[in-house]
Amino acid sequence: MASQGTKRSYEQMETDGERQNATEIRASVGKMIDGIGRFYIQMCTELKLSDYEGRLIQNSLTIERMVLSAFDERRNKYLEEHPSAGKDPKKTGGPIYKRVDRKWMRELVLYDKEEIRRIWRQANNGDDATAGLTHMMIWHSNLNDTTYQRTRALVRTGMDPRMCSLMQGSTLPRRSGAAGAAVKGVGTMVMELIRMIKRGINDRNFWRGENGRKTRSAYERMCNILKGKFQTAAQRAMMDQVRESRNPGNAEIEDLIFLARSALILRGSVAHKSCLPACVYGPAVASGYDFEKEGYSLVGIDPFKLLQNSQVYSLIRPNENPAHKSQLVWMACNSAAFEDLRVLSFIRGTKVSPRGKLSTRGVQIASNENMDAMESSTLELRSRYWAIRTRSGGNTNQQRASAGQISVQPAFSVQRNLPFDKPTIMAAFTGNTEGRTSDMRAEIIRMMEGAKPEEMSFQGRGVFELSDERAANPIVPSFDMSNEGSYFFGDNAEEYDN
Protein backbone atom coordinates (compact mmCIF):
# COMPACT_ATOMS: atom_id res chain seq x y z
CA MET A 1 0.00 0.00 0.00
CA ALA A 2 1.36 3.39 -0.99
CA SER A 3 0.66 5.13 2.31
CA GLN A 4 2.50 2.45 4.27
CA GLY A 5 5.10 4.99 5.38
CA THR A 6 2.55 7.14 7.18
CA LYS A 7 1.21 4.26 9.24
CA ARG A 8 2.77 2.69 12.30
CA SER A 9 3.84 -0.88 11.69
CA TYR A 10 1.77 -3.48 13.46
CA GLU A 11 4.54 -4.27 15.85
CA GLN A 12 4.37 -0.64 16.97
CA MET A 13 0.61 -0.93 17.39
CA GLU A 14 1.19 -4.17 19.24
CA THR A 15 3.56 -2.51 21.69
CA ASP A 16 2.05 0.99 21.92
CA GLY A 17 5.41 2.26 20.67
CA GLU A 18 6.22 5.56 19.07
CA ARG A 19 8.33 5.30 15.92
CA GLN A 20 10.98 2.68 16.51
CA ASN A 21 13.54 1.10 14.26
CA ALA A 22 13.30 -2.58 13.34
CA THR A 23 15.59 -3.74 16.14
CA GLU A 24 13.67 -1.81 18.79
CA ILE A 25 10.39 -3.16 17.46
CA ARG A 26 11.70 -6.73 17.56
CA ALA A 27 12.88 -6.19 21.13
CA SER A 28 9.60 -4.70 22.36
CA VAL A 29 7.54 -7.46 20.74
CA GLY A 30 9.97 -9.95 22.31
CA LYS A 31 9.45 -8.31 25.69
CA MET A 32 5.69 -8.72 25.29
CA ILE A 33 6.11 -12.44 24.47
CA ASP A 34 8.46 -12.88 27.46
CA GLY A 35 5.79 -11.42 29.73
CA ILE A 36 3.10 -13.79 28.46
CA GLY A 37 5.50 -16.72 28.85
CA ARG A 38 6.51 -15.81 32.42
CA PHE A 39 2.86 -15.33 33.38
CA TYR A 40 1.98 -18.74 31.95
CA ILE A 41 4.80 -20.49 33.84
CA GLN A 42 3.65 -18.89 37.09
CA MET A 43 0.01 -19.89 36.49
CA CYS A 44 1.03 -23.50 35.81
CA THR A 45 2.86 -23.48 39.15
CA GLU A 46 -0.18 -22.00 40.95
CA LEU A 47 -2.44 -24.63 39.41
CA LYS A 48 0.09 -27.44 40.02
CA LEU A 49 0.04 -28.52 36.38
CA SER A 50 2.43 -31.17 35.10
CA ASP A 51 4.52 -30.34 32.03
CA TYR A 52 2.05 -32.23 29.81
CA GLU A 53 -1.00 -30.55 31.38
CA GLY A 54 0.68 -27.17 30.94
CA ARG A 55 1.06 -27.85 27.22
CA LEU A 56 -2.64 -28.69 26.84
CA ILE A 57 -4.23 -26.04 24.64
CA GLN A 58 -7.53 -26.17 26.57
CA ASN A 59 -5.69 -25.24 29.80
CA SER A 60 -3.91 -22.47 27.94
CA LEU A 61 -7.24 -21.02 26.75
CA THR A 62 -8.68 -21.06 30.29
CA ILE A 63 -5.62 -19.29 31.72
CA GLU A 64 -5.62 -16.70 28.91
CA ARG A 65 -9.35 -16.09 29.45
CA MET A 66 -8.84 -15.61 33.18
CA VAL A 67 -6.29 -12.85 32.75
CA LEU A 68 -8.33 -11.14 30.02
CA SER A 69 -11.37 -11.20 32.28
CA ALA A 70 -9.33 -9.90 35.24
CA PHE A 71 -8.32 -6.84 33.19
CA ASP A 72 -11.72 -6.21 31.57
CA GLU A 73 -12.41 -3.01 33.51
CA ARG A 74 -15.70 -2.12 31.88
CA ARG A 75 -17.20 -5.53 32.42
CA ASN A 76 -15.85 -5.70 35.97
CA LYS A 77 -17.48 -2.37 36.75
CA TYR A 78 -20.73 -3.52 35.15
CA LEU A 79 -20.71 -6.76 37.17
CA GLU A 80 -20.18 -4.84 40.41
CA GLU A 81 -23.11 -2.51 39.61
CA HIS A 82 -25.45 -5.25 38.31
CA PRO A 83 -24.83 -8.24 40.57
CA SER A 84 -26.19 -11.46 39.09
CA ALA A 85 -27.00 -14.54 41.14
CA GLY A 86 -24.16 -16.98 41.59
CA LYS A 87 -21.52 -14.79 39.91
CA ASP A 88 -18.83 -13.24 42.05
CA PRO A 89 -17.69 -10.09 40.21
CA LYS A 90 -14.32 -10.22 41.96
CA LYS A 91 -13.48 -13.76 40.88
CA THR A 92 -12.55 -15.39 37.60
CA GLY A 93 -11.91 -18.98 36.62
CA GLY A 94 -12.69 -21.81 34.27
CA PRO A 95 -12.10 -25.48 33.53
CA ILE A 96 -8.61 -26.89 34.10
CA TYR A 97 -7.95 -30.39 32.79
CA LYS A 98 -5.74 -32.84 34.66
CA ARG A 99 -4.67 -36.40 34.01
CA VAL A 100 -5.78 -38.59 36.93
CA ASP A 101 -5.50 -42.41 36.89
CA ARG A 102 -5.00 -42.56 33.11
CA LYS A 103 -8.12 -40.43 32.59
CA TRP A 104 -8.74 -36.75 31.90
CA MET A 105 -10.61 -34.94 34.67
CA ARG A 106 -12.15 -31.48 34.58
CA GLU A 107 -11.60 -29.26 37.59
CA LEU A 108 -13.26 -25.84 37.89
CA VAL A 109 -10.87 -23.31 39.41
CA LEU A 110 -11.71 -19.89 40.84
CA TYR A 111 -9.26 -17.06 41.56
CA ASP A 112 -9.47 -13.50 42.79
CA LYS A 113 -9.12 -11.19 39.81
CA GLU A 114 -6.84 -9.06 41.97
CA GLU A 115 -4.52 -12.05 42.43
CA ILE A 116 -4.43 -12.77 38.68
CA ARG A 117 -3.66 -9.11 37.97
CA ARG A 118 -0.83 -9.27 40.50
CA ILE A 119 0.69 -12.36 38.84
CA TRP A 120 0.36 -10.78 35.37
CA ARG A 121 1.98 -7.50 36.44
CA GLN A 122 4.75 -9.34 38.23
CA ALA A 123 5.50 -11.30 35.04
CA ASN A 124 5.55 -8.01 33.11
CA ASN A 125 7.92 -5.99 35.33
CA GLY A 126 5.08 -4.28 37.15
CA ASP A 127 3.34 -2.99 34.00
CA ASP A 128 -0.25 -3.63 32.94
CA ALA A 129 1.29 -4.82 29.65
CA THR A 130 -1.80 -4.10 27.57
CA ALA A 131 0.01 -5.21 24.42
CA GLY A 132 0.31 -8.75 25.79
CA LEU A 133 -3.40 -8.80 26.65
CA THR A 134 -4.31 -7.64 23.14
CA HIS A 135 -2.02 -10.29 21.71
CA MET A 136 -4.01 -12.99 23.51
CA MET A 137 -7.28 -11.44 22.33
CA ILE A 138 -6.06 -11.64 18.73
CA TRP A 139 -5.09 -15.30 19.21
CA HIS A 140 -8.62 -16.04 20.48
CA SER A 141 -10.06 -14.06 17.58
CA ASN A 142 -7.96 -15.97 15.03
CA LEU A 143 -9.09 -19.25 16.59
CA ASN A 144 -12.74 -18.18 16.36
CA ASP A 145 -12.25 -17.11 12.73
CA THR A 146 -10.95 -20.58 11.90
CA THR A 147 -13.59 -22.45 13.87
CA TYR A 148 -16.85 -20.64 13.14
CA GLN A 149 -18.50 -19.14 10.11
CA ARG A 150 -20.39 -15.99 11.07
CA THR A 151 -23.46 -16.66 8.91
CA ARG A 152 -26.00 -15.51 11.45
CA ALA A 153 -24.18 -12.30 12.30
CA LEU A 154 -23.84 -11.45 8.60
CA VAL A 155 -27.50 -12.10 7.85
CA ARG A 156 -28.65 -10.08 10.87
CA THR A 157 -26.88 -6.98 9.59
CA GLY A 158 -28.21 -7.46 6.06
CA MET A 159 -25.01 -8.83 4.55
CA ASP A 160 -24.55 -11.98 2.48
CA PRO A 161 -23.09 -15.01 4.33
CA ARG A 162 -20.85 -15.61 1.32
CA MET A 163 -18.94 -12.48 2.30
CA CYS A 164 -17.37 -14.33 5.24
CA SER A 165 -13.82 -13.70 3.96
CA LEU A 166 -14.28 -10.08 5.10
CA MET A 167 -15.06 -11.03 8.70
CA GLN A 168 -11.61 -11.37 10.24
CA GLY A 169 -11.58 -10.23 13.87
CA SER A 170 -15.37 -10.16 14.18
CA THR A 171 -15.22 -11.55 17.73
CA LEU A 172 -12.50 -9.18 18.99
CA PRO A 173 -13.59 -7.19 22.04
CA ARG A 174 -14.01 -3.44 21.64
CA ARG A 175 -11.07 -2.76 23.92
CA SER A 176 -8.50 -4.36 21.63
CA GLY A 177 -6.97 -1.01 20.64
CA ALA A 178 -4.96 -0.12 17.53
CA ALA A 179 -3.50 -3.61 17.16
CA GLY A 180 -7.04 -5.02 17.20
CA ALA A 181 -8.31 -2.48 14.66
CA ALA A 182 -5.46 -3.38 12.30
CA VAL A 183 -6.52 -7.03 12.05
CA LYS A 184 -10.24 -6.40 11.61
CA GLY A 185 -11.60 -7.20 8.16
CA VAL A 186 -13.70 -4.79 6.08
CA GLY A 187 -16.85 -6.80 6.86
CA THR A 188 -16.19 -6.63 10.59
CA MET A 189 -15.92 -2.84 10.51
CA VAL A 190 -19.03 -2.58 8.32
CA MET A 191 -20.96 -4.79 10.72
CA GLU A 192 -19.93 -2.71 13.74
CA LEU A 193 -21.00 0.48 11.95
CA ILE A 194 -24.33 -0.97 10.81
CA ARG A 195 -25.14 -2.08 14.35
CA MET A 196 -24.41 1.43 15.54
CA ILE A 197 -26.57 3.07 12.85
CA LYS A 198 -29.44 0.67 13.60
CA ARG A 199 -29.32 1.64 17.26
CA GLY A 200 -29.51 5.26 16.19
CA ILE A 201 -32.57 4.53 14.06
CA ASN A 202 -34.34 2.74 16.91
CA ASP A 203 -33.28 4.98 19.78
CA ARG A 204 -33.91 8.69 19.28
CA ASN A 205 -31.44 9.73 21.94
CA PHE A 206 -28.54 7.66 20.67
CA TRP A 207 -26.80 10.58 18.93
CA ARG A 208 -28.02 13.24 21.38
CA GLY A 209 -26.72 14.88 24.51
CA GLU A 210 -23.41 14.36 26.28
CA ASN A 211 -23.33 10.62 25.52
CA GLY A 212 -24.32 11.28 21.92
CA ARG A 213 -21.16 13.31 21.42
CA LYS A 214 -19.04 10.36 22.54
CA THR A 215 -21.10 8.07 20.33
CA ARG A 216 -20.58 10.38 17.37
CA SER A 217 -16.82 10.52 17.81
CA ALA A 218 -16.70 6.71 18.12
CA TYR A 219 -18.73 6.49 14.88
CA GLU A 220 -16.34 8.82 13.05
CA ARG A 221 -13.31 7.00 14.41
CA MET A 222 -14.66 3.65 13.17
CA CYS A 223 -15.41 5.22 9.77
CA ASN A 224 -11.81 6.42 9.56
CA ILE A 225 -10.45 2.98 10.48
CA LEU A 226 -12.55 1.44 7.72
CA LYS A 227 -11.59 4.18 5.25
CA GLY A 228 -7.92 3.42 5.95
CA LYS A 229 -8.45 -0.19 4.94
CA PHE A 230 -9.67 0.69 1.44
CA GLN A 231 -7.07 1.04 -1.30
CA THR A 232 -9.01 2.98 -3.97
CA ALA A 233 -9.96 6.65 -3.99
CA ALA A 234 -13.61 5.99 -4.83
CA GLN A 235 -14.09 3.63 -1.90
CA ARG A 236 -12.45 6.15 0.42
CA ALA A 237 -14.57 9.01 -0.91
CA MET A 238 -17.67 6.97 -0.21
CA MET A 239 -16.47 6.41 3.37
CA ASP A 240 -16.10 10.18 3.77
CA GLN A 241 -19.77 10.50 2.79
CA VAL A 242 -20.81 7.91 5.36
CA ARG A 243 -18.71 9.56 8.06
CA GLU A 244 -19.98 13.08 7.40
CA SER A 245 -23.66 12.13 7.34
CA ARG A 246 -25.66 14.40 9.68
CA ASN A 247 -28.01 11.67 10.76
CA PRO A 248 -26.81 8.21 9.75
CA GLY A 249 -29.64 5.97 8.57
CA ASN A 250 -30.64 3.48 5.89
CA ALA A 251 -28.81 5.31 3.11
CA GLU A 252 -25.55 4.85 5.04
CA ILE A 253 -26.33 1.19 5.69
CA GLU A 254 -26.86 0.71 1.94
CA ASP A 255 -23.56 2.46 1.18
CA LEU A 256 -21.70 0.33 3.73
CA ILE A 257 -23.10 -2.94 2.37
CA PHE A 258 -22.18 -1.78 -1.14
CA LEU A 259 -18.64 -1.07 0.05
CA ALA A 260 -18.39 -4.44 1.81
CA ARG A 261 -19.39 -6.23 -1.40
CA SER A 262 -16.93 -4.18 -3.41
CA ALA A 263 -14.17 -5.35 -1.04
CA LEU A 264 -14.62 -8.91 -2.32
CA ILE A 265 -12.83 -7.76 -5.47
CA LEU A 266 -11.19 -4.43 -4.54
CA ARG A 267 -9.75 -5.87 -1.35
CA GLY A 268 -9.02 -3.88 1.76
CA SER A 269 -5.69 -4.01 3.55
CA VAL A 270 -6.04 -6.05 6.69
CA ALA A 271 -3.10 -6.98 8.92
CA HIS A 272 -2.25 -10.60 9.71
CA LYS A 273 -0.31 -11.56 12.81
CA SER A 274 0.73 -14.94 14.06
CA CYS A 275 -0.42 -14.95 17.66
CA LEU A 276 0.27 -18.24 19.44
CA PRO A 277 -1.32 -19.71 22.57
CA ALA A 278 0.38 -18.90 25.88
CA CYS A 279 1.33 -22.58 26.29
CA VAL A 280 3.78 -22.12 23.38
CA TYR A 281 5.48 -19.05 24.88
CA GLY A 282 5.64 -20.46 28.43
CA PRO A 283 7.80 -23.54 27.75
CA ALA A 284 10.05 -21.50 25.40
CA VAL A 285 10.74 -18.97 28.16
CA ALA A 286 11.14 -21.80 30.69
CA SER A 287 13.79 -23.40 28.49
CA GLY A 288 15.84 -20.22 28.82
CA TYR A 289 15.04 -18.49 25.52
CA ASP A 290 15.17 -14.70 25.90
CA PHE A 291 12.66 -13.22 23.45
CA GLU A 292 13.53 -9.62 24.27
CA LYS A 293 17.25 -10.18 23.70
CA GLU A 294 16.78 -12.29 20.56
CA GLY A 295 13.98 -10.11 19.17
CA TYR A 296 10.69 -11.40 17.78
CA SER A 297 8.31 -10.52 14.96
CA LEU A 298 4.70 -11.57 14.47
CA VAL A 299 4.90 -11.28 10.70
CA GLY A 300 8.13 -13.04 9.76
CA ILE A 301 9.82 -16.38 10.32
CA ASP A 302 9.78 -16.27 14.15
CA PRO A 303 6.35 -17.85 14.80
CA PHE A 304 7.16 -20.61 12.29
CA LYS A 305 10.44 -21.41 14.05
CA LEU A 306 8.73 -21.38 17.43
CA LEU A 307 5.98 -23.77 16.28
CA GLN A 308 8.61 -26.00 14.64
CA ASN A 309 10.07 -26.67 18.10
CA SER A 310 6.94 -26.70 20.25
CA GLN A 311 4.93 -29.56 21.70
CA VAL A 312 1.25 -28.65 22.13
CA TYR A 313 -1.44 -31.15 23.06
CA SER A 314 -5.20 -31.05 22.73
CA LEU A 315 -8.12 -32.98 24.14
CA ILE A 316 -9.86 -34.95 21.39
CA ARG A 317 -13.52 -35.97 21.49
CA PRO A 318 -14.38 -39.58 20.62
CA ASN A 319 -15.31 -39.01 16.95
CA GLU A 320 -12.84 -36.26 16.12
CA ASN A 321 -9.84 -36.57 13.83
CA PRO A 322 -6.61 -35.36 15.50
CA ALA A 323 -5.12 -34.36 12.13
CA HIS A 324 -8.15 -32.16 11.48
CA LYS A 325 -7.90 -30.61 14.94
CA SER A 326 -4.26 -29.85 14.13
CA GLN A 327 -5.20 -28.12 10.88
CA LEU A 328 -7.73 -25.94 12.70
CA VAL A 329 -5.17 -24.77 15.26
CA TRP A 330 -2.39 -24.43 12.65
CA MET A 331 -4.58 -22.07 10.61
CA ALA A 332 -5.44 -20.07 13.73
CA CYS A 333 -1.78 -19.77 14.72
CA ASN A 334 -0.97 -18.41 11.27
CA SER A 335 -3.96 -16.06 11.13
CA ALA A 336 -5.00 -17.79 7.93
CA ALA A 337 -8.73 -18.50 8.19
CA PHE A 338 -9.51 -16.59 4.99
CA GLU A 339 -6.40 -17.40 2.99
CA ASP A 340 -6.50 -19.47 -0.19
CA LEU A 341 -6.28 -23.15 0.80
CA ARG A 342 -3.90 -23.90 -2.07
CA VAL A 343 -1.40 -21.37 -0.71
CA LEU A 344 -1.80 -22.86 2.77
CA SER A 345 -1.38 -26.44 1.54
CA PHE A 346 1.90 -25.49 -0.13
CA ILE A 347 3.27 -23.68 2.93
CA ARG A 348 2.19 -26.36 5.36
CA GLY A 349 3.35 -29.21 3.16
CA THR A 350 0.16 -31.21 3.73
CA LYS A 351 -3.26 -30.71 2.21
CA VAL A 352 -5.37 -28.11 3.98
CA SER A 353 -9.08 -28.95 3.65
CA PRO A 354 -12.22 -26.81 3.76
CA ARG A 355 -13.94 -26.42 7.14
CA GLY A 356 -16.90 -28.57 6.17
CA LYS A 357 -14.64 -31.55 5.45
CA LEU A 358 -12.99 -31.49 8.87
CA SER A 359 -14.15 -33.97 11.51
CA THR A 360 -13.55 -31.66 14.42
CA ARG A 361 -15.53 -29.27 16.54
CA GLY A 362 -14.07 -26.25 18.31
CA VAL A 363 -11.05 -26.49 20.58
CA GLN A 364 -12.93 -25.53 23.73
CA ILE A 365 -14.82 -28.21 25.62
CA ALA A 366 -18.26 -27.28 26.97
CA SER A 367 -18.90 -27.78 30.69
CA ASN A 368 -21.61 -30.36 30.02
CA GLU A 369 -19.47 -32.60 27.81
CA ASN A 370 -18.63 -36.01 29.20
CA MET A 371 -14.93 -36.40 30.06
CA ASP A 372 -14.94 -40.21 30.27
CA ALA A 373 -14.15 -40.87 26.64
CA MET A 374 -11.77 -37.89 26.19
CA GLU A 375 -8.37 -38.68 24.75
CA SER A 376 -5.53 -36.29 24.07
CA SER A 377 -3.11 -36.06 21.18
CA THR A 378 -0.24 -33.95 19.88
CA LEU A 379 -1.16 -31.04 17.62
CA GLU A 380 0.97 -31.05 14.45
CA LEU A 381 1.72 -27.33 14.05
CA ARG A 382 4.89 -27.51 11.95
CA SER A 383 5.22 -26.21 8.40
CA ARG A 384 7.25 -27.14 5.33
CA TYR A 385 8.00 -23.52 4.34
CA TRP A 386 7.51 -20.09 5.84
CA ALA A 387 6.19 -16.92 4.23
CA ILE A 388 5.86 -13.27 5.15
CA ARG A 389 2.45 -12.17 6.43
CA THR A 390 0.78 -9.44 4.39
CA ARG A 391 -1.45 -6.52 5.12
CA SER A 392 -2.27 -5.68 1.55
CA GLY A 393 -5.35 -7.26 0.07
CA GLY A 394 -3.40 -8.01 -3.11
CA ASN A 395 -4.78 -7.18 -6.53
CA THR A 396 -7.61 -9.22 -7.79
CA ASN A 397 -8.47 -12.12 -9.89
CA GLN A 398 -11.05 -14.49 -11.08
CA GLN A 399 -11.11 -18.14 -10.21
CA ARG A 400 -13.59 -20.96 -9.98
CA ALA A 401 -15.36 -20.18 -6.73
CA SER A 402 -17.74 -21.97 -4.46
CA ALA A 403 -21.25 -21.99 -3.14
CA GLY A 404 -19.92 -20.90 0.24
CA GLN A 405 -17.16 -18.35 0.50
CA ILE A 406 -16.75 -16.35 -2.72
CA SER A 407 -13.46 -14.57 -2.13
CA VAL A 408 -10.31 -14.76 -0.01
CA GLN A 409 -8.34 -12.33 2.16
CA PRO A 410 -4.65 -13.16 1.70
CA ALA A 411 -2.63 -13.77 4.86
CA PHE A 412 0.69 -14.45 3.14
CA SER A 413 2.64 -12.39 0.69
CA VAL A 414 2.90 -15.15 -1.92
CA GLN A 415 2.38 -14.92 -5.69
CA ARG A 416 -0.92 -16.39 -6.85
CA ASN A 417 -4.18 -15.82 -8.67
CA LEU A 418 -6.70 -14.62 -6.12
CA PRO A 419 -9.91 -16.60 -6.34
CA PHE A 420 -13.28 -14.89 -6.46
CA ASP A 421 -16.45 -15.70 -8.28
CA LYS A 422 -16.88 -12.61 -10.43
CA PRO A 423 -20.34 -13.32 -11.90
CA THR A 424 -21.74 -14.02 -8.43
CA ILE A 425 -20.21 -10.88 -6.96
CA MET A 426 -21.15 -8.63 -9.89
CA ALA A 427 -24.75 -9.89 -9.85
CA ALA A 428 -25.15 -8.05 -6.56
CA PHE A 429 -24.34 -4.74 -8.25
CA THR A 430 -27.15 -4.46 -10.77
CA GLY A 431 -29.16 -1.29 -11.01
CA ASN A 432 -28.63 0.45 -7.73
CA THR A 433 -26.36 3.34 -8.69
CA GLU A 434 -28.64 6.27 -7.99
CA GLY A 435 -28.51 8.61 -5.03
CA ARG A 436 -25.81 10.90 -3.72
CA THR A 437 -23.01 8.36 -4.07
CA SER A 438 -23.91 7.42 -7.66
CA ASP A 439 -20.68 8.64 -9.28
CA MET A 440 -18.54 6.82 -6.73
CA ARG A 441 -20.62 3.67 -7.07
CA ALA A 442 -20.29 3.76 -10.84
CA GLU A 443 -16.53 4.23 -10.54
CA ILE A 444 -16.21 1.32 -8.07
CA ILE A 445 -18.27 -0.98 -10.30
CA ARG A 446 -16.14 0.01 -13.29
CA MET A 447 -12.97 -0.93 -11.40
CA MET A 448 -14.47 -4.24 -10.33
CA GLU A 449 -15.48 -5.09 -13.86
CA GLY A 450 -11.98 -4.27 -15.02
CA ALA A 451 -10.35 -6.74 -12.63
CA LYS A 452 -8.49 -9.15 -14.92
CA PRO A 453 -8.43 -12.91 -14.40
CA GLU A 454 -4.89 -13.37 -15.65
CA GLU A 455 -3.24 -10.87 -13.29
CA MET A 456 -0.95 -12.32 -10.67
CA SER A 457 -1.10 -10.97 -7.17
CA PHE A 458 2.05 -10.46 -5.06
CA GLN A 459 4.18 -10.78 -8.20
CA GLY A 460 7.42 -12.68 -7.61
CA ARG A 461 6.77 -13.14 -3.90
CA GLY A 462 7.51 -16.62 -2.73
CA VAL A 463 7.81 -18.88 0.26
CA PHE A 464 11.10 -19.71 1.97
CA GLU A 465 12.86 -22.75 3.38
CA LEU A 466 12.89 -22.71 7.18
CA SER A 467 16.70 -22.55 7.02
CA ASP A 468 16.45 -19.31 4.99
CA GLU A 469 15.97 -16.87 7.86
CA ARG A 470 16.97 -13.81 5.84
CA ALA A 471 14.38 -14.60 3.15
CA ALA A 472 17.14 -14.61 0.53
CA ASN A 473 15.87 -17.32 -1.84
CA PRO A 474 12.17 -17.06 -2.62
CA ILE A 475 10.50 -20.18 -3.99
CA VAL A 476 7.49 -19.26 -6.11
CA PRO A 477 5.05 -22.06 -5.34
CA SER A 478 2.97 -24.10 -7.74
CA PHE A 479 -0.66 -24.73 -6.86
CA ASP A 480 -2.96 -27.61 -7.58
CA MET A 481 -5.80 -25.71 -9.23
CA SER A 482 -8.11 -28.72 -9.09
CA ASN A 483 -8.41 -28.18 -5.34
CA GLU A 484 -10.88 -25.86 -3.72
CA GLY A 485 -9.59 -22.41 -2.73
CA SER A 486 -12.12 -21.40 -0.09
CA TYR A 487 -12.08 -22.67 3.48
CA PHE A 488 -15.77 -22.08 4.19
CA PHE A 489 -16.72 -23.79 0.94
CA GLY A 490 -20.46 -24.66 0.77
CA ASP A 491 -20.00 -24.98 4.41
CA ASN A 492 -21.57 -26.35 7.56
CA ALA A 493 -19.27 -24.95 10.25
CA GLU A 494 -20.88 -24.30 13.60
CA GLU A 495 -22.13 -20.83 14.34
CA TYR A 496 -20.18 -18.68 16.80
CA ASP A 497 -22.15 -18.12 20.01
CA ASN A 498 -20.90 -15.80 22.71
Rank of each mutant, 00 (worst) to 15 (best):
F338E: 01
V312Y: 08
T15V: 08
R342Y: 02
Y281S: 02
I406M: 11
N59E: 07
R156H: 09
L47Q: 01
D491E: 14
N202C: 13
F420T: 15
G132V: 04
V408Q: 08
R102Y: 14
T134Y: 03
K184S: 03
E375K: 08
G158S: 14
N395F: 08
R441P: 05
E375M: 03
I265Q: 10
R19N: 06
Y219G: 05
T130G: 01
E220S: 01
E495L: 07
S287H: 08
A218L: 12
I225H: 08
D34V: 13
M191T: 06
R19K: 05
R216M: 09
E210R: 09
K48P: 04
L328M: 15
F291N: 00
Q168H: 05
S335N: 06
S413N: 10
A218N: 04
S310T: 13
A182L: 05
T396L: 13
E339S: 00
E254Q: 14
G37S: 15
A131H: 14
A323P: 10
Q398T: 00
T433M: 06
T45W: 03
E244P: 06
R208L: 06
A181E: 08
P453E: 01
M238A: 15
H272Y: 03
P423K: 15
N397R: 15
M136R: 00
S345E: 12
V67I: 11
D72T: 12
A178Q: 10
E192G: 10
R389E: 08
W330N: 04
N144E: 06
H140F: 06
A401R: 15
V242N: 02
N124V: 03
E339D: 15
C275T: 14
A22N: 04
M105I: 11
E14Y: 03
R65W: 07
D112V: 09
K98Y: 03
G431Y: 15
Q42S: 07
V299K: 08
V186T: 08
K98L: 13
A387H: 02
R117N: 03
G5R: 15
L193N: 14
S482I: 05
L61K: 02
F489C: 05
C164Q: 09
T171Y: 03
F458R: 00
A337E: 01
G185R: 09
M159N: 05
L466T: 08
F206T: 01
C333N: 05
I475L: 00
R382C: 13
L56G: 11
S486P: 01
F338V: 09
G209L: 07
Q459L: 05
E254D: 12
D51R: 09
